[in-house]
Design a protein around this nucleic acid. Structure first.
Length: 179
DNA sequence: ACCCCGATCGTA
DNA sequence: ACGATCGGGGTT
């Protein structure tokens, strides 16, 4: 059974949604990738989050309704793909950092490790920013019934956020599967 | 108008 | 462990 995840799925606690995204499928045209690594950016207090500096033209998406794509450029060359979570006016999103591409028979075609490499391979750019994750926007997330056990979910501090200070840089908001 | 820095990556 | 890289966010 293939269920397209909609606003209701994403409009919940960000850490909960982040863990549940593992094992879900990122679908783009005829490509299906099982999500294996994510990071949560949760609320205005999260000093690692762009939203900690308040609402700006860039971060406005994060304050908007859940289930939209937040895509931004980093280091002048890499697009980061995030899905907005939580309630309206509560800025939060989940960065998709790794996935495994499968064919129709669920055979592994390719592994994508690293958010920049993933978007480069899928040709994801700014054009998706602020659009709903749906068939209409051509990029969406599906539940295909894959069950992930809690013990399969690994966690660690988020990558590349040392600027966030001792407390927030150390939060174990990165969740991943050992494939 | 401009300065500064980064939710990375590849090489070592 | 570290440096390349450069667009644009945030502020002036």
């Amino acid at each position: 059974m293939h269920t397209v995840l909609t606003k209701d799925f994403f409009k919940r606690d960000t850490l909960t949604v982040a863990k549940e995204l593992l094992g879900k499928f990122l679908v783009l045209g005829d490509k299906s990738l099982i999500i294996t690594e994510v990071e949560a950016y949760d609320g205005h207090d999260d000093l690692a989050s762009h939203a900690s500096k308040g609402k700006t033209a860039r971060t406005e998406v994060m304050f908007g309704s859940a289930g939209r794509w937040y895509v931004y450029l980093i280091y002048g060359m890499y697009w980061m793909l995030n899905i907005v979570t939580g309630d309206e006016d509560y800025p939060a999103a989940i960065l998709i950092r790794g996935a495994v591409e499968l064919d129709k028979n669920n055979q592994v075609i390719k592994k994508y490790s690293g958010p920049g490499k993933l978007t480069k391979a899928l040709r994801i750019t700014k054009s998706l920013n602020n659009l709903m994750a749906s068939k209409k926007s051509k990029l969406w997330i599906e539940d295909r019934g894959v069950k992930i056990l809690p013990k399969q979910i690994k966690k660690s501090a988020r990558i590349g956020v040392n600027y966030a200070g001792p407390i927030w840089a150390k939060k174990e908001y990165r969740f991943y599967l050992d494939i």
